[in-house]
């Protein structure tokens, strides 16, 4: 309980810092909105030229695209501490983290809730709402509930990836770009219907990094589609369990890294 109160205090401080200069914060949000908006323009242009993706129309694919962007933006905003962990390792500041009587993970989470990610969030939300109106997909309470849990699970999976990136810092701080393949690569892959990809890539993001299981399958279900040919739609519910399993694995790697950590810096 105390830890949670502390977390919200830390986040409150970080928000006040970032919003101290309102104009700058607004411009940063706007900048992200523009950059991510262009990605959707590109996707819409491809639909304009080719018609469909794996049998999905643009509004259906937009529902998936908007949802995955929403989830990624939230996870990205929450995980700033994991994402910037390499600088702590490089400067030897991890020691300070370990000396304080609070879980290091919670301290990292409390480091910053990145306000500028609101740009991607707004863009994803706008696309998602447009797609909802176009497809009239979520018309049952169970659909809404499924998407709510899917969003939570998606945030957990993406945040776990960022935690794994932080754990990798204990081994190397140079090769971190590798993790982008899974974080940004995962977002890019899951923003389009996974059924259109070759099994190699599709199964990787369903089974190894279960972001497809917790984001793509639920969206397919609320659209009344089979996520994969022959797969019943109720599978989306148990598939959400991929998130806690994956988080557990990420936590294990983090513990492992922390144990073998030797301090640097002065």
């Amino acid at each position: 309980m105390r830890a949670i109160r502390l977390y919200f205090m830390l986040i409150g401080v970080s928000l006040r810092v970032q919003l101290a200069d309102r104009r700058s914060a607004f411009i940063q949000i706007f900048g992200q909105l523009v950059i991510t908006g262009v990605e959707f323009v590109a996707l819409a242009a491809l639909f304009e030229r080719f018609g469909s993706f794996s049998g999905w129309s643009l509004p259906e694919a937009a529902l998936l695209y908007g949802f995955s962007d929403l989830v990624f933006a939230l996870a990205d905003a929450l995980s700033y501490g994991f994402d910037s962990f390499s600088s702590l390792v490089r400067n030897g500041d991890v020691d300070r983290l370990l000396l304080r009587p609070m879980s290091p993970i919670l301290q990292l989470l409390g480091k910053e809730l990145t306000v500028k990610r609101a740009g991607r969030l707004l863009q994803g939300a706008a696309v998602f709402v447009w797609a909802l109106i176009e497809t009239r997909a979520v018309d049952r309470a169970s659909d809404a509930l499924l998407l709510f849990f899917a969003a939570l699970a998606g945030i957990v999976v993406f945040s776990s990836l960022f935690l794994m990136q932080a754990a990798l810092c204990f081994v190397t701080v140079e090769a971190l770009e590798v993790m982008n393949a899974f974080t940004y690569g995962g977002r890019q892959t899951v923003s389009r219907p996974l059924s259109g990809y070759k099994p190699l890539l599709r199964d990787f993001f369903l089974l190894v990094v279960p972001i497809g299981s917790v984001v793509y399958l639920p969206i397919a279900t609320v659209l009344g589609r089979e996520g994969l040919p022959g797969l019943p739609t109720w599978v989306a519910w148990p598939a959400l369990l991929g998130a806690p399993i994956f988080a557990f694995a990420a936590y294990g790697l983090w513990r492992l890294g922390l144990r073998r950590h030797t301090s640097t810096g002065s």
Partner: peptide, 18 residues
């Protein structure tokens, strides 16, 4: 031509932006 008719499978044929 492909997909323009076949793709809009459900939700009462939502109009395509395209």
């Amino acid at each position: 031509t492909a997909g323009a008719s076949g793709a809009v499978g459900m939700a009462g044929g939502a109009p395509r932006l395209g």
